[in-house]
C-alpha cells in the first residue's frame, strides 16, 4: 500500500497538488468549526447570565432526568467512536465496512435526536416551553442549536452514504468524509460542555 501511493504521487504531480488542496480544505473547515465554537460561546454566555432566572417556574432539578440524559450522551459518544472506526475502514479501502459504519453512526445520531426531541416535546407539553422563563429560553436556544447541528450532520451522513455507494472511495469522497468526521467529533465535543454546564451544574 505504501509503495502504491508513493508511485501514484511520483507519477502524477496533479495528485500531489490535490493532496495539498485537501489539506487546505481541512484547515479551512477547521476554521469554520472554530467560528462555530464562537457562536456556541455566545450561547453559553447567554445561558450563564439568564440560565438561573426561573421566573417562579421549575428549575433543572424538577425538569431534568439524569439517567435519560446519560443514555442520550452515550448515543452521541458511541456514534463518535463508530465514525472513527469508519474512518479507519476508509483508510483500509473497505468500502462495505465504510457504508456499514456510516449507517450505524447515522442510527446512533438519530437516536440522540429522537431522545432530545422527546425531551423537548415533554417539556413544552407540560407548559415548560421556551417562553416560560429566562432559564428555559436559554436552555432551548443552546441545546436546540446543538441539536440542529446534529440534524444537519445526519443529512450530511445520508449524502455521504449515497456518495460512497455511487462513486466509491474516490479522492473527493475521502476528502468530504474527513470533514464530516471532524464535524461529527466537534459536535460531540460541544455536547460535553452542554451536559456539564446546562444539565449537571443545573441539577447539582
Amino acid at each position: 500500500m505504501n509503495t502504491e501511493v508513493t508511485n501514484i504521487n511520483a507519477n502524477n504531480t496533479v495528485e500531489l497538488e490535490h493532496g495539498h488542496g485537501a489539506e487546505l480544505k481541512t484547515f479551512g473547515f477547521w476554521i469554520y468549526l472554530m467560528s462555530d465554537l464562537v457562536l456556541f460561546s455566545a450561547l453559553f454566555a447567554t445561558f450563564a447570565v439568564i440560565g438561573y432566572n426561573y421566573a417562579g417556574g421549575p428549575g433543572p432539578k424538577q425538569l431534568f432526568d439524569l439517567p435519560y440524559l446519560f443514555t442520550e450522551t452515550m448515543f452521541l459518544l458511541f456514534s463518535s467512536v463508530t465514525f472513527g472506526l469508519t474512518m479507519v475502514a476508509m483508510n483500509g479501502n473497505a468500502k462495505k465496512r465504510v457504508i456499514t459504519g456510516l449507517v450505524i453512526t447515522f442510527l446512533l445520531g438519530l437516536g440522540f435526536i429522537f431522545m432530545e426531541l422527546h425531551e423537548f416535546y415533554g417539556l413544552i407539553a407540560a407548559g415548560h416551553g421556551p417562553s416560560r422563563s429566562g432559564f428555559l429560553s436559554a436552555f432551548f436556544t443552546l441545546v436546540g442549536t446543538h441539536g440542529t447541528h446534529v440534524f444537519f450532520g445526519l443529512i450530511w451522513i445520508i449524502v455521504m452514504i449515497s456518495q460512497v455507494v455511487k462513486k466509491g472511495l474516490t479522492d473527493g469522497v475521502r476528502s468530504r468524509m474527513m470533514r464530516l468526521s471532524m464535524f461529527w467529533h466537534f459536535l460531540d465535543l460541544v455536547w460535553i460542555g452542554v451536559f456539564t454546564v446546562v444539565y449537571l451544574l443545573g441539577v447539582l
Binding site: 489539506e23 481541512t26 477547521w30 472513527g84 472506526l85 479507519v88 483508510n91 474527513m178 468526521s181
Partner: peptide
C-alpha cells in the same frame, strides 16, 4: 499525517479514547 481525522489512525486509538 497532515490531515486531521485520518492521520495514522487505528481502531485501538479510538477504543482507548472511547
Amino acid at each position: 499525517n497532515q490531515n486531521m481525522g485520518a492521520g495514522h489512525i487505528t481502531n485501538k486509538g479510538y477504543i482507548t479514547g472511547f
